[in-house]
Amino acid sequence: MKSVSQIRKRTALIFLIPVTLVLLSSALYPLISTLYLSLTDAELENFLNPNYVGFINYIENYEGMWYGVLADSLFWNSVRNTLVFSIFSVSLEVILGISFALIMLIENKLKWFVRAAVLIPWAIPTIVSARMFEWMLQDQFGIFNYMLIGMGILEQGKAWTTDPQTSMIVIIIIDAWKTSPFVAILVYAGLKALPNEVLEAGKVDGTNGITQFYYIIFPLILPAIAVAIVFRGLDALRVFDLIYLINAGSKDIMSMTVYARREMFEYSHFGFGAAASTMLTLIIGVIAVIFIQRTRLHKLDEME
């Protein structure tokens, strides 16, 4: 006669089977087939029947020249773009998100309006907001240039989204605009969870707005911020739609995903593209592991 807990465990396992199957087939299978593809010479003609070629797609020396993903300066350029984009946009989003969360805390008649306004950028689909910004930043008809020229800051309209010097900054700003609400919500939840009496004790001890934030509020919402950074960081490393929509061909903002896609689908270098995809997965994976390690260690200290 099985004990109650044994029966429970078995039931749990049985319930887990369908989920595991779905996960394995939808996530594991493509992962493995991409890995396999990266070791073949698959192109348009032989896609259904490629040949195994080992690590040629990753790195190869032919007649004195280096070929392969790891030898492609464009690949490393896109890695650099992705990292720059991720670091700056996540930082900006955290700062904006915290600010919005603090604003959302203010109790007044406009509270519902402020909250809706804060959430709207996130609710708008990327393609809509990308086009919106494109039009606002357009050099001849865009409102942004119109205002700058009117204020005398610029003489002619600037092509913000295609100018190599400004396109990355523009992308970062659009992304921060779009996703700060996400950070704001996480931080807001953290703020709401702050025990009010602790803040009052702070007031009694003599905090003003700034010291209260620095000594009490900020350390206590750090876990929420860490969660936001992990999520946003992983999203940012995977960025595709915004960059593709604004300027798919530009070298200055090309991210790893845009690079991989171009190799795969525009050049039909399925093997090479798969290798690029594998590399980008590896890079993101390593960064993710390092980051989660650090934040969890940080949390362990507090949670004990």
């Binding site: 009496e197 004790a201 000594y215 507090e302």
Partner: peptide, 14 residues
């Protein structure tokens, strides 16, 4: 110039 002891102690947890 007052000091207060709260019902839930309200210590700074961190």
């Amino acid at each position: 110039n007052i000091a207060m002891v709260f019902q839930s102690y309200a210590l700074y947890p961190h």
